[in-house]
Amino acid sequence: MTAASRAPQDARRGTDRAARLRAALDTKAAPYAFIAPFFLLFGVFGLFPLLYTAWVSLHDWSLIGGNEGFIGLENYRVLLGDAKFWNALLNTLGIFAIAVVPQLLAALLLADGLNRIVRGRGLFQIALIIPYVTSIAAMAIVFSTLFGTEYGMVNQVLGVFGIDPVNWRGGRLSSWAAIAVMVDWRWTGYNTLIYLAAMQAVPKDLYEAAALDGASALRRFWRITVPMMRPTILFTVIISTIGQMQLFTEPAVFDTGGAMAGGTQGQYQTVMMLVFQEAFRYGDYGYGSAVSWVLFLVIVVLGLINVLLTGRIKGAS
């Protein structure tokens, strides 16, 4: 770069300084400007309810009667000794355990399949998202019918193999299994699409090179696709954890009647069902808020464990 004359160079130095200043400002301020809309809107519409709920949980607060006095941590003390809470937490974790792993694995394989085909991909994509857009009422009736004791299609099929009818809602494990089927039916396609989008960012030449090197499809999937997609896989693991811990819709529609009781003996009452039951069905808003807050803390802890575990795996590989 050579200067043609002195004067223009001076002028240029001036604009350079302005530009540098602007650039420095840009580097410093832009990140905050980019994240500001999210945090501002969340601050108003997310944080306020959260803090309000925390406040309510420290009171004897009935939905109808309103605030009936500050009671400190009494709701939390009761909660720790409440068998219904521990039962609900156990159910939530149990359903989580049997639902999430097959779901994410199936989604990964389906996405890989979709990514490899050309013909009919659009149609397959639509078909996969259909469970997510099917009306909850239709889903509720279909699955209730499938898992009925007397008239259920699943029991009819089992009968063909000489297996006695199962009271799906009656047992803990059987109800968990039925709900896990509903959850996976509804959310596998959803995760598949997220994975499919992420696969678009895996450079294709990696595959071509591997294919030429003679790596099998399965090997390429485990050695290229999965490692390249680690951030997205971590993302789906965390959102699935959060979503599953707040599981409500599927067990609620699986239940009969509107009590949110999760079966005759709470076999499948999840924590969110308990929250709804306490706060809205029985009007104990203070206690419902306390359960809600404890659930929030449990989720945060589980999320951190997720991050730590995946961090370790990442470090090890």
């Binding site: 209730s144 019918t145 009925g148 007397e150 008239y151 259920g152 009969t256």
Partner: peptide, 14 residues
Amino acid sequence: SAALPIWSEEWNAA
């Protein structure tokens, strides 16, 4: 009793 909970789909089917 047929032990079909009231308002359930099975109850309707019954």
